[in-house]
Design a binder for these strands. Structure first.
Lengths: 250, 250
DNA sequence: TTGTTTTTGAAAGAAAATGATTGAAATCTG
DNA sequence: CAGATTTCAATCATTTTCTTTCAAAAACAA
């Protein structure tokens, strides 16, 4: 890999996640630790980043993403916390499914990059996953407008060829027209099937209230679901209005 | 290969991928390393690129030479012309396949929107297609980094579920690492299969000379292809160096 | 053709980048 | 706090790439 490419990759990673571990860059570039250290030294000298123990950090004064500024720091913090926690459930060797949608997308920056396989029906996820050097498979089928989710009969068949250790489902931000209180039947079917193919399924919601409404619908479609709704450390984490619920397959 | 052709090829590669390795250019041009080094020295002196260890890097931020802007504008014009023509071949009711890659992407803006179905393995195509309200299906399978093409065994199976009236294949801009003189075998396999599933197949190339080199490789993989290389209005359109060749299945 | 210029490819020594190793420093853990 | 672990900077050997040089091949002009 050429030097400018490495530098660019490092900056790209920092654009996504504000902090990078050296080991991650090493794996992403197939270069040695020494080389990456030299890269970081150079980039720091050029005022592109700040070196910290274990890696590098984005420097505050300079370039700030508009999207980051837009969002309130509090919401971002919460969202990142739950995303971080969800990602921490993923272990090396896992095969996981990521549902389409912006909520689930938050997980991606925190996923371990080494030795995991991700399957998704979210077209917009694929770029992010590939950028992080994560082995990625896309479900085939009809590309649904507006949400960029792959659905339909073909998608179901395509999906059924996989098995997952964990799957992460979103329940909001699905379709502006239908809204998320009336999720698209087609998408619901995909969700249901994916949950059935996974050993463990997690549902992520940005807002616990919306979550309840939305989940009832999905529950209608899949009676086998048992919703653990207790504040049990092992199966449920609640961070203010951000909720993640573990769903256990019977 | 003539000097101006080499220079043009190098610039084209840099247009595609922001960085080129010398070895890749050597393989693509069948020239010696020395020659390529001289080329790079010249091009750098002319402010067309920046040399870096191992190759060359696109220079950005600075103004491009007027001649380059002219050229790219001309190229764009030609590209659009051929894309327009290719799109005009698509009729209402058609089911078509679009190969991944930037060349084929040019067709999308000119496709008729009503009553056609598009199947593709190009992840980047999907957004464009959806935006134009075109019914779109994505092939399922492994998402290949850098090119955003869906490939692999699963992709083949997914692909075989479809039949096409027409398919449009690209032969360049495939992979910076492999270069376009040695297309990825996996991608070639997908191309080959898609051609087999279509009644009519069209191959699009930006540059007829590059095209020859690239196509030879693909030809190795699919003997059934007959390349109509005559200036026959019905089967071949040539616009200066931009060539589209109709491929007839035997 | 002959002689000249240009282009090309190959070789050799110089320069740069890389990867591994080492001991020091920082961080974590109990 | 003390020991263990991780991360770091510095160094060196190796590999890769670069520049220079020169001779052969090709293009060109007389």
């Amino acid at each position: 890999m050429l030097t400018p490419d490495r530098h660019q990759l490092i900056l790209k990673l920092l654009k996504q996640q504000s902090t990078v571990k050296i080991q991650d860059i090493v794996e992403a570039t197939n270069s040695s630790e020494s080389t990456i250290r030299r890269d970081l030294t150079q980039l720091e000298k050029g005022k592109y980043l700040k070196r910290v123990h274990g890696g590098a950090s984005r420097l505050q004064g300079k370039l700030q993403e508009p999207s980051m500024i837009e969002k309130s720091a509090k919401n971002l913090q919460e969202k990142k916390q739950i995303a971080k926690h969800a990602a921490s459930l993923v272990e090396e060797g896992d095969s996981i499914y990521l549902d389409a949608g912006s909520t689930v997308a938050e997980i991606i920056p925190f996923l371990p990059v080494h030795n995991i396989v991700v399957v998704t029906n979210g077209l917009t996820h694929v770029n992010q996953l590939i950028d992080r050097n994560i082995t990625t498979y896309i479900i085939g089928g009809f590309a649904k407008p507006k949400t960029n989710a792959v659905i339909g009969r073909g998608a179901l068949e395509s999906l059924k060829q996989y098995r997952f250790d964990k799957c992460f489902m979103g329940v909001n931000g699905i379709h502006p027209e239908f809204g998320f209180t009336t999720p698209d039947q087609e998408e619901a079917l995909i969700k249901q099937t994916a949950i059935g193919l996974a050993r463990e399924a997690y549902v992520l919601a940005d807002d616990s209230k919306l979550f309840e409404i939305g989940f009832a619908k999905i529950g209608d479609l899949h009676e086998a679901l048992i919703i653990t709704n207790e504040h049990d450390e092992e199966s449920l984490i609640e961070i203010k209005s951000k909720t993640m619920v573990k769903v256990v397959n019977s």
